[in-house]
Design a protein around this nucleic acid. Structure first.
Lengths: 195, 195
DNA sequence: ATAGCAATAGACTGACTGGTCTACTTTAAT
DNA sequence: ATTAAAGTAGACCAGTCAGTCTATTGCTAT
């Protein structure tokens, strides 16, 4: 059995704690305590803390990908409007977590990229998948003539993801979503404009 | 005696290890070992690991501020050219550390903002100081008519710092400076343009 | 009914954590 | 020369870390 309730509980608690405190600062015992699962079960489902961490990333990425798909590939909405909704959702999340959590993938990317190539690869793939979603949305926008075509959508997608992650980081240290608003404003004012 | 060679050795080793592995993953014993200082000395100069961490941040910020000032306030060079040199220096650093270290302040901001308000405040101030340097440089550019004046320099500065930090993060997970180049390119193509 | 495996349960281990403690050495002031 | 303080030195502490081990329970197929 792979899809067990216990396994899911571990992953959920892990995602929550790791989001709040980071990977290194989150002990296995703390995860166990918050979801009331004994250690035996943990090492039944996961071979190591790293294995567990990767599972948390996978699970988060899968569930987030659905959200992203629903937001960015909703063909009933103009592409730039979809992007704005995506940003709005991100800002909402930021408020909900009191500007403390931010983006799990971004956090781990910062914390673990220099520490473990396995983690770096996993996180990089998640980023690339997200970027791809942006690319499609931007292609739609270019096809409709909503934005200029002289910059390739891949470049724009990289720029947007990059800037957004940076804005989230800055919002955390500032404890305010203002940098996220600032980023969005200038992005739509200067970058995502018609030819 | 505040300015002791031993204290400096501790801070230097600490900055190096924390840059590579992060704060939580860097043990005091590891710092001690890399610079050959006994534990007694450590707790003679610093009251705790947190106190030490704050000293590392302070020391880094002070030395980096000099670099930043030299690059961004060099009135012999056109302001946009100064910015380009700043970005080039950042990319160089990224290559030197094999895309593993990135920006110490950004790293710690991500790792510790949700964990400790003391750290968050310290890091936030460093960011704000940097942002101020950008503001001055952008004001020069606006005064010369190199860029449009309809967006306040504070907003542009926030956008640039934010985007640059995000690009560094992305460069770490990608193990390539490409996102940094991408960011710079689009920034100068779309945002930092004359009226 | 029972054999066999999946899963639960938590005591336990050695290594390591940040931090304390006492002893010793050096330096500077008198 | 004497004394006090600054600094060096590292053994040591309680607590925590990731991970192991054995014992037991629950389920399922025969």
């Amino acid at each position: 059995m792979k899809n067990n309730a216990t396994r899911d509980k571990l992953i959920d608690s892990g995602a929550q704690l790791i989001s709040q405190q980071g990977y290194n600062a989150t002990g296995i015992n703390a995860v166990l305590k918050t979801c009331g699962v004994p250690k035996g079960s943990f090492y039944h489902y996961f071979s190591s803390k790293e294995d567990f961490g990767l599972a948390v990333i996978e699970s988060f990425a899968a569930s987030y990908d659905e959200t992203l798909s629903a937001l960015l590939e909703d063909s009933d909405t103009p592409p730039l409007e979809r992007l704005k909704r995506y940003f709005a959702t991100g800002r909402e999340h930021m408020h909900e977590c009191d500007h403390a959590t931010g983006c799990l993938i971004g956090n781990l990317g910062q914390e673990l990229s220099g520490q473990s190539d396995t983690f770096r690869d996993a996180l990089n793939h998640v980023f690339q998948r997200w970027e791809q979603r942006f690319v499609h949305c931007l292609q739609d926008a270019q096809a409709r003539g909503d934005i200029a075509t002289h910059t390739p959508p891949e470049a724009l997608a990289s720029f947007i993801l990059t800037g957004w992650e940076g804005a989230i980081l800055r919002a955390k240290t500032l404890k305010s979503a203002e940098p996220m608003e600032q980023f969005e404003k200038i992005l739509f004012q200067h970058v995502l404009v018609p030819a």
